[in-house]
Amino acid sequence: MWVTEDGDIRRELRADGRYDEARGNRPSAYTGRYTVTGNRLQYVDDSGFIATGEVRDGVLHHEHLALHRREERRQS
């Protein structure tokens, strides 16, 4: 899980190559698939929109966003 400093945007990068992005109170605001090449990510939204991101110094940069990694705690 990658989140903005204020926690408003939360992007889950799943092991199956899919992503799910929540924004504020909107769960699954954006969904699609992603690929990783080195430190670069390419996103293809389910609507067809394409975007890129890059991990630098442990921070995922995407457009004007800086997302920080946060481990998700799963309840059993």
Rank of each mutant, 00 (worst) to 15 (best):
N25P: 10
R23K: 13
F49E: 06
V36M: 13
D45N: 11
D45Y: 09
D20L: 11
N25V: 07
D46L: 03
T35C: 04
S28P: 04
L41S: 03
R26A: 14
S28E: 11
D45F: 09
Y43K: 00
D45A: 10
T35R: 13
V44Y: 00
R18C: 08
N39W: 04
A22K: 06
R18Q: 10
G32T: 06
T37D: 14
Y30G: 02
D20P: 00
P27N: 15
T37I: 01
R33E: 05
D46I: 01
R18S: 11
T37A: 10
G32P: 08
T37K: 09
V36S: 01
G48D: 09
T31D: 05
A22Y: 05
G38F: 04
R23Y: 13
Y30K: 07
T31I: 14
F49H: 12
G17E: 07
T31G: 04
S28T: 11
L41R: 01
Y19K: 04
D20N: 13
E21P: 03
N25T: 10
N39Y: 04
D16S: 04
G17W: 09
A22L: 07
G32I: 03
Y19H: 03
V44I: 12
R40I: 01
R23L: 07
P27H: 14
R33F: 03
A22Q: 09
N25R: 12
L41H: 05
R18W: 02
G24E: 07
L41G: 02
N25H: 10
Y43P: 00
S28L: 13
S47N: 15
N25Q: 11
E21M: 11
G32F: 05
T35A: 04
V44P: 02
T35K: 09
S47I: 12
G38P: 05
D16Y: 07
Y19P: 02
A22S: 15
R18M: 08
S28K: 15
G24R: 02
S28I: 00
R26F: 12
D16P: 08
T31W: 03
S47A: 12
D46S: 10
Y19Q: 04
G17V: 06
